[in-house]
Nucleic acid binder design. Structure first.
Length: 482
RNA sequence: GGCCCCAUCGUCUAGCGGUUAGGACAUCGGCCUCUCACGCCGGUAACCCGGGUUCAAUUCCCGGUGGGGUCGCCA
């Protein structure tokens, strides 16, 4: 069993593309097959080395590792390479020659300009008209030269029929096709031909891709048959649209994987959101990577297009960050660290900082929807002194709070059982003696300790900070009050 | 317009002839509470329309309508 993901390196990796890659990857992992990555760089106008790197980088960040494909960070290689189409040109020429020799394709000397003009003329006369290549060179028998394309001789009768793993039986009349181009005049293949020759020579047994490619399947099947080969299985996935129902693009929010990385999303959570898009497993919504592999199946895919929902993605992400099962502590530490570093906090070299981080994370994980937010909430734990929020300071670090903070510092200094329970008990006793409630004193203490009016619970915060820091901050807080 | 595809709450979806049509997100109440969250309880909210088939259709069939994809020497 061999599947592939074949992006073209013409920009960032789109999350719709990630969904396609994911479904292929899951199937390969589930069936112990091979997940092949192929770069379709035959559009020389738009393909760039930089976007190829971005795509490889994005896939690696997501954990969608390829068994065969371009070499990158320890991945790639394989017996069916090269995995860049521009390095496979001889293969396409060979197959095109074969088809021409067998009379299944022909050389066409009509120029792009001529055809464009004809197309324009027809459009001008009737905007809804259906332009088709008129077949000028179909039986001309042009010899091989430098100035021709190779076209496929589409059978004029019959139908193409295939059993889509998601959509069921699809039947298309051959007459709906025109004689499409296989090879450009410079010898570079067009999409359908390149994809078929590569899928064939790479031994791909199942092609899963977006429904926007469904229209390519009949001509591709014709090519397999012309080449005397058995077509692979096909599975088309419903489309992911923008909330407005139009094509999902940048103006609908983040669509490139890089933006999710930068905004502090968990790669697994992103995949979890995407796997539920066009696929379901009863009422289950939250999956680990292994859950997805175990449960994924084409039969549970559905056929109707959907709309991207950023709020649901955020909720799934939050769910992943909350659960230790889905995001183990060490993963959390590693993932949040870059965001802490962006705030000027070094947790890589200082083991004490790492310990503090480990202790603090359980208290912020249910509060932070992203690693970016988590870094914000974790900030004061890791800093020598909190950064004071102006509004919070003005509201809570007021004259009446000054003696309270000093007393609280004394209290904490004397707590022998420095656990959350011990602190809670000590505070309870103190509060009772004072005749006040925790809510009367919590906010000034919170601001003194964290610099903000929002934080984890007071006792939890004190516990993680430790006695010395707590006492120091409470006294410093009191000192800030004139 | 040709060809292809689709149709359950606002959104993602469960359902595979008989259900008070379920869940999640979002939304609106409430509880919990030292802040913010988390958590918990509850509410509003859907089978596109019309014909068949059937004792019985959200479910099967046909038609309509609506939406989407695609019609390149792009992928």
């Amino acid at each position: 069993m061999r599947v592939r993901f074949a992006p073209s390196p013409t920009g960032y990796l789109h999350i719709g593309g990630v969904r396609t890659a994911l479904f292929n990857w899951l199937w390969a992992r589930k069936k112990a097959g091979a997940f092949v990555l192929r770069i379709e760089d035959t559009d020389q106008e738009r393909s760039t080395e930089a976007s190829k790197q971005v795509i490889l980088d994005s896939l690696k960040w997501l954990g969608l590792t390829w068994d065969e494909g371009p070499l990158f960070g320890g991945l790639g290689g394989g017996a069916h390479g090269p995995y860049l189409q521009m390095e496979r040109l001889a293969l396409y020429e060979k197959h095109a020659d074969q088809l021409v020799a067998e009379g299944k394709a022909y050389r066409c000397t009509c120029t792009k300009e001529q055809l464009d003009a004809a197309r324009e003329a027809l459009k001008a006369k009737d905007p809804k008209a259906n332009f088709r290549y008129p077949g000028t060179c179909r039986d001309a028998g042009h010899p091989k030269s430098s100035k021709h394309v190779v076209r496929f001789k589409v059978p004029t009768e019959g139908v193409v029929r295939y059993a889509d793993l998601v959509f069921g039986e699809v039947v298309t009349p051959n007459a709906a096709q025109q004689d499409f181009v296989l090879l450009r005049s410079d010898g570079v293949p067009l999409y359908n031909f390149g994809a078929v020759v590569d899928d064939l020579t790479m031994g791909i047994t199942l092609v899963a891709r977006g429904r926007d490619h469904m229209v390519n399947t009949p001509p591709q099947i014709m090519l397999y048959e012309a080449l005397g080969a058995q077509p692979p299985q096909f599975a088309h996935l419903p489309m992911m649209l923008a909330p407005s129902g139009e094509k999902l693009s940048k103006r609908h929010g983040a669509v490139s994987v890089g933006e999710y990385l930068d905004n502090g999303f968990s790669p697994t959570a992103l995949l979890n959101y995407l796997v539920r898009f066009g696929w379901s497993f009863g009422d289950e919504e939250v999956f680990s990577l292994q859950d997805m592999i175990d449960k994924f199946d084409w039969a549970r895919c559905n056929k109707s297009d959907g709309k991207f929902d950023a709020k649901k993605l955020a909720a799934i992400n939050h769910e992943h960050l909350k659960q230790e099962r889905l995001t183990p502590l060490e993963t959390y530490v590693a993932s949040v660290t870059p965001f802490l570093e962006k705030r000027g906090l070094d947790v890589v070299r200082d083991p004490r900082q790492r310990d503090l981080l480990r202790a603090a994370i359980p208290h912020v994980r249910e509060r932070a929807k992203t690693y970016l937010e988590a870094a914000e909430s974790l900030d004061f734990f890791l800093r020598d002194a909190p950064v004071f929020d102006e509004k919070a300071t003005a509201k809570f670090l007021v004259a009446a709070a000054k003696p309270t903070l000093t007393e609280m510092a004394d209290l904490v200094e004397g707590v022998a059982d420095f656990t959350i329970e011990g602190l809670s008990a000590a505070f309870a006793k103190w509060l009772e003696a004072k005749g006040v409630q925790i809510k009367d004193v919590a906010q000034p203490a919170r601001v003194a300790l964290t610099g903000r009016s929002v934080s984890p619970g007071l006792y939890e915060t004190i516990h993680v900070l430790g006695k010395a820091r707590t006492v120091e901050r409470l006294r410093a807080g009191a000192a800030r009050i004139a």
